[in-house]
Amino acid sequence: MTDGESAAASNPVLYVVRPMATAARQFAKSLVRPSTIVYPFERLEDPQFRGEVAVAAGKPIGVGAIWDNYRGVHALNVATCISCNLCAFSCPDLCIEMVTVPGGDPKHPKKCPEIDYGKCSYCGFCSDACPEGCLTMTTRYELATAKRAEMVYSPAKLYEVFQHKLPMNPIRLERPANEDAILLDPPLCIGCNACARDCPTQCITMLDVPKPEAKPGEKLPKRIWKEPVVNDSDCVRCGTCISVCPKECLFWGGRA
């Protein structure tokens, strides 16, 4: 009992009295109200836990608090979705499937994202990519289901979430400046109309190009003498035209 460690170890004030006092203080404090939130009956977003949020004043919960950039269930505004496929394209987990919803015409069926929350990692890439801001992440966090199939949220269900007007996370990623416009490599284009047909915003117009005179001995390419022209202000940079082009003559480039 001569070494310092044992002397300290048998110091009753340090090892018994002080911890007991601390525990008693804690006990007295939590007799009034323990820190635990009795979750299914109380929620973190209830006003008593979040004085700064005026739920009573009709403001959406979560404004100006930790919830600002919370990434929960998605909300989808089906009405403004342009079926551009960008969300599905950017999803790293491949959990978005584009399913047909009523409202399109037979030639251009309207397709909206259906999200499988069994796979979703809540990365938010889809809502970042959505050009119309109609797919956003909300603060809803209760996703427990009894069946695995119920984890797949159809567009209708996502629209239901949208209708709750939960706070959203409207970040929109800017495209890099050198990849911000659709450019055409004219000699390759065959005027097939695929891009104009599939463009979700219908911002591509096929304009006539003059058919050149065939020089003797030269064979003119077999094509339709039209070329796509993109209305830059309507284009949402979805890249659909690039991916449908059979000749790979459309590409990303800097804005002129």
């Binding site: 525990a23 804690q26 006990f27 404090k29 939590s30 007799l31 323990p34 820190s35 635990t36 009795v38």
Partner: peptide, 9 residues
């Protein structure tokens, strides 16, 4: 009791 000591219920 232990719950209250540990700030829970």
């Amino acid at each position: 009791l232990l719950g209250r000591f540990m700030d829970r219920r």
